[in-house]
Simulated assay, not measured.
Amino acid sequence: MTTPDPNVSAVMSERALLINVAYRLLGSMAEAEDVVQETYARWYSMSPAQQEAIGSPGGWLTKVATRICFDLLGSARVRRESYVGEWIPEPLPDLTEWGGERPGGITADPADRVTLDESVTMAFLVVLESMTPAERVAFILHDVFRYPFAEVAEIVGRTPAACRQLAFSARRRIGAAQVPVTPAVRQARIVGEFKRAWEAKDIDALIALLDPGATVTADGGGRVGTVLRPVEGAAQIVRMLVNLAGRQRGLTLLERTVNGRPGLVAEQDGAIVTVVAFDVEGDRITHIWAVRNPDKLRSWTARSSEGS
C-alpha cells in the first residue's frame, strides 16, 4: 500500500491563496486559473529531491505564480491596445452564486473562489489597472497579502527599497481615487431604486440617483454590441438607459452581489448576458461598469428570478 505524501495536501492547500493573488493581479479568473495550473505544473515537473530541498513550498508556489502574473501583466498591456472597446476586470459573483459546474463539465472547487473584500471591488480593480506591473505586484503582495518587501524584491527584480517606493506610489493612486465607503445597506437600497427606475423608464428618478458627473463603462470585447467608449454625464447616461430599456425585449434585471458589492445582472432567455457593478458616493451613483463580454461571465450561472 502506497503511503500518502504529506507534502501533496500541504502544496494543494495553497491553491486558494494562489487564486486570490492571481485574480487581484490580473483581474481575470480565466487567466488566474491558467497561472495556478502552470505553477503546479512547474512544481510537479521537479524531482522529489528538488521538492524536498524547498524549505517553504507555499512560498515557492506564491513566488512562481506571481512571477508568471508579472510577465503576463506586461504582455496584457500590449494585448489591450487591440481590445475592442473598453477592458473591464472580470466580475465575480457572491460565493453562494457560484455555479456547481463550470463550462466543460468541470465542477467548481471552493479553492477556485476569490475572497470578496475591499481589494476586489470593481472600483479598486479599475484603479489597479492604471498601475505599472511592478507597482501592482508590490502593492498587492505587501499591502493586501502582507509579504515583506524583501520577498517582493525577489519577484520583481528590484531592491526592497525600490519595492517600498513602488508600493507607496500605488498606495497614493489608490488614495487619490478613494471616496468614503457607503454602507452596503445604503448601496443596496440605491441599486434597488436604480433597477426599478430603469425598468419603469423613470427619467426623473434616474437623474436623481446619478451623480451629475457619473460615468458608464461597458465591456463587450467585440463579442456583443455595447458602447465602445465611456458615457459621461447623468443626462447622457439616462438617455442611453431609456433607449436600451426600449430596445431590449425579454430582459430581466436581478439584484446580485458583484465583487462583494450590491450590483445587478441582466438575464435573457434564462442566461445572464450582462453583469453591472456600481460605485456609490453618498446617495449618488458615480460609476457604472457593465460587463457583457461572454468570456468574462463564465463564473455566473443563469438564476431563477423567483424571489427577486
Rank of each mutant, 00 (worst) to 15 (best):
I285E: 00
R292K: 09
P262G: 06
P294L: 07
L253S: 09
N243V: 08
V238M: 08
A245G: 03
G246C: 11
N259E: 06
G250V: 00
V273Q: 03
H287A: 14
R261T: 13
G246T: 11
W300M: 08
R229M: 13
R247T: 12
T257A: 10
A234G: 09
V291P: 01
A277K: 02
G246E: 15
D269C: 07
R284E: 08
I237M: 13
V273M: 00
E255M: 10
A271C: 08
G250S: 08
F278I: 09
T257M: 14
V273F: 01
V231H: 03
T252W: 01
Q236K: 11
M240G: 14
L251S: 12
V291W: 02
Q248W: 11
Q236L: 14
E255P: 06
R249C: 01
L253Q: 08
M240R: 13
Q248D: 06
K296D: 10
N293T: 08
R229Y: 06
E255I: 09
V238A: 12
D295F: 08
D283Q: 13
A234V: 13
E281V: 15
D269Y: 11
G250Q: 01
P230C: 13
R292C: 06
N259L: 05
I237G: 04
W289Q: 02
I237S: 05
D295W: 07
G282Y: 07
G260S: 03
A290M: 07
K296I: 03
N293F: 02
T252E: 14
I272P: 03
L251Q: 11
L241V: 10
R247A: 14
Q268N: 10
N259W: 01
S299R: 12
V280K: 09
T257W: 10
I272E: 08
D269L: 14
A235I: 15
G263C: 01
A277C: 01
